[in-house]
Amino acid sequence: MIEDAIHRLQRLIEFPSVSNVSNEAVSREVADQLEAMGFEVEWTNYYDLAGTLKCNVIGRRLPKTKHEPRQIGGLAYFGHTDVVPVNDWVGPPIVATDEDNDAFKPLIHNGRLYGRGACDMKGSIAAMIAAAASIPIESQTQPLWIVCTADEEVAFCGARQMVAKSNYYRDIVAAQPLAIIGEPTSRQVVHGHKGIATLRITSHGRAAHSSTDEGINANDAMVPMLSLLRDIAAQTRQEKAYHNAAFDPPHLSWNYGCSDFMTAVNITPPRCVAWANLRTMPGVDGEDLIERVRTKANELGLEFQRFQGGLPVWVEPDEPFLKELSEITHSQPSVVCYGTDGSEYHELNHRVVLGPGSIEQAHTNDEWISLDELDRGTKLFTELIQKYCGS
């Protein structure tokens, strides 16, 4: 089974599906693999803000025995086919030409498979597909879904679109299966994570030669806003009202920055942009802080924008299905501070973040997954399919 998972992962890595380009080709590869295993495949496509085609693939394999599509039970797996950009790729520590050392040319070295997306999260997708391939449809008594979305790395846009448009997803909601968000957790059960919200504040001035008084420096109006953003950052760290002790760090991780984009000192800056980002938690949504920023922006005559983010995920750790998963994985339910597509799947009552690979390898310039971890992840997914889909 490990050879199959390795082959599938190598094939997926070869598609340079960075979030700013179309993921149509890698989605076609996933769909072809699923259809070869007896899955019915639904596509939900959309164009992002740059006009680039993005694709979500939803595979469904029903048991051969008489089964209603919206019958309770089964297993649904959720992954994403987009990856983060590649900057200064290093790859494995072996002697190779620059041509060979390519983030989208998977390499195996010392028991590790290197390549962009190896850990986050094409390794998990390959493990799940290999696991499903090892189980004949004749042995299924409950449905199995494998969902691969676009744009997880950019505000969960693909998952949001899939939830709104997919008929198969409506079946998943009705069935309330075990819902695995397969992000890298080192195969540990994660029952909660933070959400995310992002703000942008823009000050508009007027460019002119800096030796004259004709310009309007856009930075002037931004200074009081930066003071507020700094004060809020300190407040969220100090006041317990903005803390949730289940997380580490327990605060909103309020982060902010600013730029006027200038490269010459003899031009009055015509534009200045500040941003703020916060990691929301159950019971701590930061809405009052966001409103303070909005109000201040209006007072200062600044442009305020709030971007679509994601809700926190929280399932009580004593839920029976989490106890079952803890026994299977030999782990205790825990929480993480990053976000996942699970933010969009709030209609699913049995969500869990669980997958092979470590988050420490995600987004690095030598991203990898160990072959042992890939093997263990494939075996874990096989066991879960057998348990929740019948065998």
Rank of each mutant, 00 (worst) to 15 (best):
G79Y: 05
R187W: 07
I108H: 08
Q176G: 01
H80V: 14
C157Q: 12
A155H: 12
A133G: 03
C119H: 04
S186F: 02
G117P: 08
L107T: 15
D88K: 00
D120V: 05
E99L: 14
I146V: 13
A96E: 05
D102Y: 06
K105N: 13
G195R: 00
C119L: 09
I135T: 02
D98G: 15
M162H: 04
T81A: 13
D120I: 10
S186Q: 13
Y168V: 09
M128A: 15
A155E: 11
G192K: 13
V84G: 08
V189F: 03
E153L: 09
M162S: 05
L107Q: 11
I94Y: 02
Q140N: 05
H193D: 00
K194C: 06
K122C: 11
P143Q: 13
N167S: 15
W89F: 13
Q188E: 09
I181A: 03
V95M: 14
S166C: 01
G192M: 03
V95L: 11
A96W: 10
G195L: 00
Y168C: 03
D151V: 06
C119P: 09
P92G: 04
P184H: 12
L107G: 03
A175G: 10
M121E: 02
C119Q: 08
Q142R: 08
G79I: 02
H80W: 07
S134R: 10
F156A: 04
Q188S: 10
F104H: 08
F104I: 10
R187K: 15
C148K: 02
A197Q: 05
D151W: 07
V190C: 02
E138D: 13
H109F: 12
V90A: 15
P85Q: 09
P92W: 00
D151L: 10
A179K: 06
M121I: 07
I129C: 01
D151Y: 05
S166I: 07
I180E: 01
G117C: 06
I108N: 00
A133F: 04
S134L: 12
V147Q: 01
V173M: 08
Q140F: 15
P93G: 07
G111T: 14
A174G: 07
E183R: 12
Q142P: 01
D151C: 09
Y168E: 11
P85W: 12
R187S: 12
K165L: 08
D151R: 11
A103P: 04
D88E: 12
L107Y: 04
A175M: 05
P85K: 01
S124E: 00
T97G: 15
A159V: 09
F104W: 12
P143Y: 13
V90E: 15
T149K: 01
V84R: 15
G182M: 08
M162D: 08
A130Q: 03
N87P: 01
P93W: 08
V83F: 02
D100H: 12
W89Q: 09
H109D: 15
K194N: 06
Q188I: 14
F78D: 00
K105F: 13
R170N: 09
A150E: 06
M128T: 14
